[in-house]
Design a binder for these strands. Structure first.
Length: 748
DNA sequence: CCGAGGAACATTTTT
DNA sequence: TGTTCCTCGG
């Protein structure tokens, strides 16, 4: 008799690709596991009901230990298991007796759990809302209710992770109340946007120079490269000097995960340990650079706000008076500073509600701490916990599958999502031969769905990482199926956009060395060395750039021209658009020289100019761009004609798909080593994060979920085996097919 | 010292 | 597929 579910049984040593013997045995083991899971006749025990009703009633952590568990990991888990607060769910607060007198009929719009959350009166509240349970809707109702109850809208602070999410919620709240004016005064936005506003507004009180500029990630990378090059590092121990992106990654992880550079390198980049002292120097210089040039990066905004809230009582009072009710969305993705910030903002009044789903925490690699959500009850004693588990999105079959995924998770607030929808088809698992065949199978299936009346926009294909979509894109192009790619290279990260913005940055701050480098190197005859010389001249000149200083140099006329452009950009009497169009005129010939496909990039320059329309100053334009970057969907797709409204299939990484839903979802490349990613296999907690990511992928689907994988993949041959996530599933919960749709061989 | 051309190389990324 | 690093010839 087969075990009902096959437990994962890997250790780090199984996975070392160098060791061919082990590799072979790993392969064999995987193959047999695969066969047992998918190919043998259904013979397992009947699925046992996993959650007894009484077990489901209380939020409680699963305990978890395994043989050979390290002390470190044990301690890590102890954070969760000792969270005493989890046992103490506060009793429901009183629901106002006179519900009927309220303008909005909440009872008819919300289920019991949602209603309890929206009308909560018992102080701090943690809402655990699974995927598709109407979390957004509940927050909207909460905001509407607070307003009805007499809280001035301006005192409600709604913190989210994207500006879109905030404005959407405020929009829905205003529809609900039928009072756009009142709801419009709700203060909503991202953590970063909020921090920016507060710092600018109270700059004088908190003693921060108001004239700072925001350094986005790409700019920050330029600065880091600049610093690294200035150090003139030589190859050490025949290890190449790390790339800018890698250095930025290390410094970023060090910051957001609160580790030293040394710790990060030892943990994630062992081969770079010879560079530890250099990177520590770079870290210090980067800090200095920001101070010297009045730059703040994203983390600085949050940290400054937190630090000032702690240490400046006048500021704290002002902020507390202004915002009396705090609502935080996607709490599972907050990092340490954000968690503390919520605590500091709530203050003594503790009118704080956080909403999240620990099973959907997928940004741990960036410092998001799902501990925040688990620790909330400890930070705010006597807080309430409400779970919303009724799912309005997916069919029972899809949810049964998704619940299996959460069942395989080690720690979480246990939850069983229950569907309110009628039954549909079971999720399908498809094994294809190659990536090409997988792509072609998906296209077949998509065309099928189209014939059955689905719009392309109802369908999405999601994958672990960007490059996996290549084959699919090629096939879609061949068949002329229009598609949109989410989460590719962002608009502001494109080379030509960055180039244009470098001029803008210089016009705002003539001491910005990184921007100068970028701009100067466009001029023929100027490279690393001369550009450094020019920048030094500008700095010695107190930040004044004068072409006259370079009379006699071979590039004198180029300097004159450059000076003209910059003066033009600085001229406040002209409209932003005028200035940017002048810049475009200067930049076009440069771009023609450097880019093969320069014609295709021109529209982006116009987009940039038109984005400026809504800003009142160059500085504001620049901040807005950093805090609210236009989405990647500006991309020009190689389909013949494509405008934003066209009916298109969506291709997206799972990360970018979070919070979205489609009728039909294809999860492609379900291979071990791909999804889960090979780099996560050695570490328990990152493997858990991959599993949560898989959970997010599955719960995007409303009507149909299709998982597929190729058995043969050119680049990572030895991992061309089905994802372990597939074999963790109960075989009753999916159907399995081999080969093309026309000739499916159904096994289970 | 500059820049062209070839080789090497790639997670995920709300701000 | 695109970007960045490295080397070598002007």
């Amino acid at each position: 008799m087969l075990p009902h579910r096959l437990a994962p049984c890997y250790t780090e040593t199984d996975m070392k690709p160098q060791d061919t013997d082990r590799q072979d045995s790993y392969r064999q083991e995987q193959e047999s596991r695969f066969e047992e899971t998918f190919l043998s006749p259904s013979g397992g025990e009947a699925p046992s009901p996993r959650t007894a009703p009484e077990e489901a009633a209380l939020p409680r952590l699963r305990r978890f230990e395994y043989p050979g568990m390290s002390e470190e990991h044990r301690q890590y888990l102890a954070v969760f298991t000792s969270s005493s607060a989890l046992a103490a769910s506060a009793p429901p607060g009183p629901v106002p007796a006179d519900l009927a007198s309220l303008r909005v009929d909440y009872r008819s719009r919300l289920n019991d759990a949602q209603l309890q959350a929206a009308l909560w009166e018992g102080g701090p509240l943690l809402v655990i809302a699974g995927a598709g349970t109407g979390k957004t809707w509940t927050i909207c109702c909460r905001a509407a209710y607070l307003i009805e109850r007499g809280v001035p809208p301006g005192e409600i602070l709604l913190l989210t992770f994207t500006r879109k999410a905030a404005s959407e919620m405020i929009g829905r709240a205003s529809m609900l109340l039928d009072d756009a004016e009142a709801a419009g005064r709700i203060s909503g936005g991202t953590f970063h946007g909020f921090a920016h506003r507060m710092i600018k507004r109270y700059a004088d009180i908190i003693g921060v120079d108001r004239n700072f500029t925001i350094l986005d990630e790409t700019d920050a990378r330029d600065v880091i490269v600049l610093i690294r090059d200035e150090l003139k590092l030589r190859r050490r121990d025949n290890v190449p000097v790390p790339k800018g992106q890698v250095i930025q990654g290390i410094l970023g992880t060090s910051r957001s995960c609160e580790l030293t550079v040394k710790e990060v390198i030892t943990r994630d980049h062992e081969h770079l340990s010879v560079y530890i002292p250099d990177l520590e120097v770079i870290q210090r210089l980067y800090l200095k650079y920001k101070q010297a040039h009045r730059y703040m990066d994203y983390d600085d905004l949050l940290e400054v706000l937190y630090e000032k809230l702690q240490n400046n009582s006048r500021f704290r009072q002002l902020v507390h008076r202004q915002f009396t009710h705090i609502i935080v969305d996607e709490y599972q993705d907050t990092n340490t500073v954000q968690g503390r910030l919520v605590e500091a903002l709530a203050g003594e009044r503790r009118q704080v509600m956080v909403v999240g789903d620990d099973a959907q925490s997928i940004y741990g690699f960036r410092g998001a701490k799902s501990e925040n959500i688990l620790n909330f009850p400890r930070i705010f004693p006597a807080s309430g916990i409400i779970r919303i588990e009724k799912n309005y999105r997916s069919t029972p079959e899809i949810l049964a599958y998704a619940n299996d995924v959460t069942g395989a998770m080690t720690f979480a607030y246990p939850k069983q999502l229950a569907s309110v929808r009628p039954g549909g088809a079971k999720p399908e698992v498809h094994r294809c031969f190659s990536q090409q065949e997988e792509a072609s199978w998906i296209c077949d299936a998509v065309e099928n769905l189209q014939q059955q009346g689905s719009a392309l926009a109802d369908i999405a294909a999601v994958y672990r990482s960007n490059h996996l979509s290549g084959h699919l894109q090629a096939e879609l192009l061949k068949r002329r199926i229009p598609f949109i790619v989410y989460g590719g290279l962002k608009f502001v990260e494109r080379r030509h956009v960055k180039d244009m913005l470098a001029f803008v940055r210089i016009s705002l701050n003539t001491l910005d060395a990184a921007a100068w480098h970028r701009v100067l190197r466009m001029i023929s005859g100027i490279g690393q060395v001369r550009s450094g010389m020019i920048i030094r001249t500008v700095a010695e000149n107190g930040g004044v750039f004068s072409a006259q200083k370079f009379r006699g140099h071979p590039f004198f006329s180029a300097m004159e021209e450059l000076e003209g452009v910059i003066r033009y950009l600085q001229d406040d009497r002209l409209s932003l658009q005028q200035r940017l169009l002048r810049l475009k005129a200067y930049y076009l010939p440069v771009m023609r020289q450097h880019c093969e496909d320069y014609a295709r990039r021109i529209p982006d320059l116009d987009v940039l100019a038109s984005l400026a329309e809504s800003s009142s100053s160059m500085e504001e334009f620049f901040s807005d761009l950093a805090l609210d970057p236009p989405s990647a969907s500006f991309q020009d797709y190689p389909t013949e004609k494509h405008d934003g409204d066209a009916d298109s299939l969506v291709l997206s990484t799972v990360h970018s798909a979070k919070g979205l839903e489609w009728r039909y979802v294809f999860v492609i490349s379900m291979l071990d080593g791909v999804f889960p990613d090979i780099r996560s296999l050695h570490d328990f907690s990152s493997l858990e994060e991959e599993r949560r990511l898989f959970y997010v992928a599955c719960t995007r689907a409303r009507d149909g979920l299709y998982l597929s994988f190729p058995s043969y993949i050119q680049t990572h041959q030895y991992f061309a085996l089905p994802s372990r996530f597939l074999s963790e599933q109960d075989r009753e919960h999916f159907s399995f097919y081999i080969g093309r749709r026309e000739h499916p061989v159904k096994f289970v």
